[in-house]
Design a protein around this nucleic acid. Structure first.
Lengths: 141, 141
DNA sequence: TCTCTTATTTTGAGTTATTCACGATAAGAG
DNA sequence: CTCTTATCGTGAATAACTCAAAATAAGAGA
């Protein structure tokens, strides 16, 4: 597993470092984490890791395509390992929980806006807002 | 026109102030402006307006439904007067220009994700990323 | 029209989430 | 085992707001 991650890093032209492996593992085990959460998780096994390093790593890994960064309104940036598969997100307006949703219609359905107004559209991003199961249950109680 | 705005404010239970009218007019003439731009525009006619007041006003008007706030990734919040009509946005990845797009399919098409995972979905937000006409032309040059 | 209450606005400070700069460290090619 | 240079750590800086409290002014009621 760590080996696969190491290979992914090397294939992206990046050096394999303990911090990057730990960060990628942390994100795999807790998708949609924000930087602060990841700092906390990394500190459990690598207490010396600095906040700035985590930001550096997130930036580099995102730029290289190993991570995808999402920025839901009103929340700090979050990171996930599923990249390039045109999936979207459900975000809980109460607790901020994020869940993945596959794109509903075929390959890249949302890629076609009704009017293009001269824009050369490259990608589409869909965010569904609502209450997650837990907050919904809590609201009924 | 100013009268209509005054009425909208009153209907929302808000006091009618010069700043709010000026702000609403500024946003009508330049939709999708960010706070900083609006501060500059208001300063042309009301130099005493503080940055914080603009934020206050934007916050109050958004909460009352007179404005809609959008937060495209990597850009400060932007404001527009079209509210509650389920329209979406085209955002230029180069210059940040934003354009409106009506929702493609019927009433609220994007409101139905493929899987709901227990979420009670209330709204959906679609952002199309690409190059605007101007940046596209510039890229060809 | 004049008060008077309280919503707005201003002034000023504080916060969050990040980015920038640069010396210290360590990955990995040779 | 070197040596180069990508990466990491330290420290400071920034952007875009938000919070608190005193000063001002809408507009309901007299």
């Amino acid at each position: 597993m760590t080996l696969t991650l190491a290979r992914e890093l090397r294939d992206a032209g990046l050096r394999v470092t303990g911090g990057r492996i730990a960060l990628l593992e942390a994100i795999e085990s807790r998708p949609h984490s924000d930087a602060e959460t990841l700092v906390r998780v990394l500190h459990e096994t690598r207490p010396a890791t600095s906040v700035q390093s985590v930001h550096n790593m997130l930036h580099d890994l995102t730029r290289s395509g190993l991570l995808r960064r999402i920025e839901p309104a009103g929340s700090p940036s979050r990171y996930e390992r599923r990249t390039g598969d045109n999936h979207h997100h459900l975000v809980c307006t109460d607790c901020g929980a994020v869940a993945d949703v596959d794109c509903a219609v075929g390959e890249a359905p949302c890629l076609t806006p009704s009017q293009k107004l001269g824009y050369a559209v490259k990608s589409a991003e869909v965010t569904f807002w609502g209450l997650c199961a837990a907050c919904l249950a809590a609201a009924h109680a």
